[in-house]
Design a protein around this nucleic acid. Structure first.
Lengths: 126, 126
DNA sequence: AGCTTAATGATAACGCATTTTCGCTTTGCG
DNA sequence: CGCAAAGCGAAAATGCGTTATCATTAAGCT
């Protein structure tokens, strides 16, 4: 991750413009619009580098391939659209989670996933 | 899934006695205490059958192999112990999740994961 | 512009969970 | 008890996401 290549510019641009967590495949498909012969190996290499730089953070979704999104966002969680398969961010989270933990258990962290239809897919139902 | 074999009895017993979501590997290890030469293929076959019967339900945890637990439990979510890697159930969940969803999005379902240390591992810290 | 070398991309290889194969074992009906 | 067929286990095969290989391309310093 030292040289500034068109592929890496395309990959960074995709994350900046799309603004939701992306899998390597999604990065590849979207990145090819700006760097036509982008390869999957380059996507993996670049994403790994951008993670090490702290520019990206990993986003894990149950039963889905690993995704990545821009780091530095406020605390948030993820919405998974059952129709299009895309993952979206949403802000805020309940404050009373600690109270759910069984006695003796210690809570460090938490994740919330909401499943349903994104605005675009819900609108299409009409 | 028609004959009642010692292997299947062992597998059902493991789920009944341990009472938390188990991966096929965990089922294998625990099941071997009751059916010593149990094989992983049998675990996968039996778990698949028990799922189709509705006796087990799948539990997906981000970045972890698939787990299964007894069906019929009340609504609950899962706690992942960072120390021992085991998954536990906990009851209850916040009621105000619907309010977090962005405008136009439709919520069908949700999952909550809490990460930390289980009672056993937290106690060991002493 | 020339040159060194990091970066790329096609493809092979890998890791891991899961499924299939196949010869042997066991269930359970007759 | 005898026997047909379901079930078993070890190991090979599969699927899929990710990583390594290696010949070629292209940054970017001089």
């Amino acid at each position: 991750m030292e040289r500034d290549t068109s592929q890496r510019r395309a990959i960074r641009r995709v994350f900046r413009e799309i603004g939701r967590p992306l899998s390597p495949q999604e990065v590849l498909e979207n990145g090819r619009e700006h760097a036509p012969n982008l390869g999957i190996a380059t996507v993996y290499r670049s994403v790994k580098g951008l993670m090490e730089e702290g520019w990206l953070v990993p986003v894990e979704v149950p039963g889905e391939p690993q995704r990545y999104e821009l780091s530095g966002k406020d605390h948030h969680h993820h919405f998974s659209c059952k129709a299009c398969g895309r993952i979206f961010d949403f802000d805020g989270c309940p404050s009373n989670l600690g109270g759910l933990v069984p006695p003796g258990f210690e809570m460090d962290d938490h994740e919330i996933y909401i499943y349903g239809r994104c605005a675009e897919c819900a609108g299409v139902k009409v």
